[in-house]
């Protein structure tokens, strides 16, 4: 007698197809942009053959100076914002994860996550108004300060998660062996936390690099970051060099996220 070919209790018809559709929807625009960035034709839509001319244009063409400066600004701000926000997040996570409960702990947690909860446009407006009201000149510094704020929760998450997973017996062993709190942190906790800190740093870096709305509001007239430069260019019409830049940023983001992912997973296996 032939056995009935049954379907598992978890299976639902169509779900696999929807998942594939979902992935296609998510990737199609990006992949198409990447493909067309290699288009050997001035017209953006007619395929003229594979070519790197638009990448050349990005680096050496008419607007390349503007984009180069914007990229330098973006990288500078991202590095500094990531460093500062990671330091602040590390400090905060120590207090939150290792500290005993205190009045206002929940409030602090809310505060750390506040930048995530306030809509970006509101943060942008509020920050702009703040700088204007105290007469703070808008420029690279104003961008940096704004970035530090919203980078903190992104750095905090992986760091706190990592710290949670580290048993406190190592610190106790250190203290038992006459280490000061500072030494215990520096020599014992910090190395163990490192994957989380690196992961948080990378996340903060990417988030700062990618930010548009807040940056656009607080940057002032003379300064551009890469996203604002791209936006400005798009407003004038999509040109192929924009697609080249987008592709570059795409690949960079992908690489950075993968590294962040690998670091946090490698750390876990130890």
């Amino acid at each position: 007698m032939m056995a009935r070919v049954g379907k598992s209790i978890r299976w639902y018809p169509g779900f696999r197809a929807i998942t594939i559709a979902c992935l296609i929807i998510l990737y199609a625009p990006l992949i198409i942009v990447m493909i067309y960035s290699f288009n050997n034709s001035a017209s953006i839509t007619v395929w003229g053959g594979f070519s790197l001319i638009w990448y050349e244009d990005v680096f050496f063409g008419l607007e390349s100076a503007k984009f180069k400066q914007a990229t330098i600004n973006s990288l500078m701000i991202a590095v500094m914002a990531a460093v500062v926000s990671t330091a602040i997040a590390t400090s905060a996570s120590l207090a939150m994860v290792r500290g005993r409960a205190f009045r206002g702990k929940a409030l602090t947690f809310g505060l750390i996550n506040l930048p995530l909860m306030v809509p970006e446009i509101v943060t942008a407006v509020a920050t702009l108004i703040f700088f204007a009201s105290i007469g703070f000149e808008r420029g690279v510094l104003s961008i940096l300060l704004a970035h530090i704020v919203f980078c903190i929760p992104f750095a905090y998450l992986p760091i706190a998660a990592r710290l949670q997973g580290i048993s406190s017996i190592y610190e106790q062993a250190g203290r038992d062996l006459y280490a000061t709190p500072g030494e215990t942190f520096r020599l014992i906790l910090l190395p163990l936390m490192l994957p989380g800190i690196l992961s948080g740093f990378l996340l903060a870096f990417i988030i700062s690099l990618d930010d548009f709305i807040i940056t656009n509001f607080v940057k002032g007239a003379g300064v551009e970051t890469l996203p604002t430069a791209i936006f400005g260019a798009v407003k004038q019409g999509i040109k192929p060099n924009i697609m080249a830049i987008s592709s570059i940023m795409l690949v960079v983001s992908f690489i950075l996220v993968s590294i962040s992912y690998l670091i946090s997973h490698m750390g876990r296996e130890k």
Binding site: M1, A3, R4, V5, G6, I9
Partner: peptide, 20 residues
Amino acid sequence: GFEDVTQGQVLLYGDDISPL
């Protein structure tokens, strides 16, 4: 009915419930 059989049948009061 949560597992298939490779071979064989299950009869319930004479009725083959294997395909159900």
